[in-house]
Amino acid sequence: MSAMTTTPRTVTVRTSAAGFVGGIWHFARREFRDAIASKWFILYTIAFTVLAVGVSFLSLSGVGSHGFAGFGRTAAGLLNLIMLVVPLMALTAGAGSIAGERERGTLLYLLAQPVSRTQLLLGKYLGLAAALVCSLCIGFGVSAVVLAWRADGVGTGSFAMLMSFTAMLALSMLSLGMLISVISRRTGVATGVGLFTWLTLVFVSDLGLMASSIIFKLRVQEIFGLAALNPLQSFKMAVIVNMNASLDVLGPVGAYASQTLGGALPWLLASSLLAWTLAPLGLAMLLFGRRSSV
């Protein structure tokens, strides 16, 4: 007790940037530790790894004996799998983050510490992002082992880029999830909205765009523009451009995009993903700062 009180004013008021970043870093580390110890993380990682390995294995074993694998149906299956699982993983992780703290009552306690809401939010974001990337690294790493063992598969560069784009997709979905978490009062609501968003991005928006392209006879540039708004489509196109150097796989719309945009196309798609990362996160910070519920 005495040690505590020998110096009555040890606290100095600091506004240093180092303190700001330090706070974020501590939250990030705590979030990461909690995430990788949690059931959802382990479950998703195992599920993703098993599926990714399965798909990699299948895509090679079909004609693997001929030492050839292309971007065929099963390789596309990996893409399909990523587009289903990764957004689900990231959206639910994000949706649970702030709402969960609020519901458990821990949010108030954390905010009563000398930290800002921005620090808390960014710290949680970075921690969860690191956990997601870690999970993806494990999934991709194990499938790379399978690919290496079966030799000649998808090119190393393409595979690394696939991983990078998947990480970008995960980060954008995570920030969308955090936005949902900030505006939802309860974890249940946040998870529900997260699932609904997932459903919308994965199925509803594509189906809607298909229907409207038939009904309204949309032109290729309109279809491309609308599709590129969906981060999942941007992701898919970015991966395919990367593997094929062209989008002609995607029919007239893809060919149009490849011809008119050329070398700018991958950058455009990557920046769409980046925008989907920064915009929801920025909005989440704004709203979280303004919200008064704890």
Partner: peptide, 11 residues
Amino acid sequence: PNLRLFVHGPA
């Protein structure tokens, strides 16, 4: 043919 944009996707 324009719908080919949506191949390789969950939709």
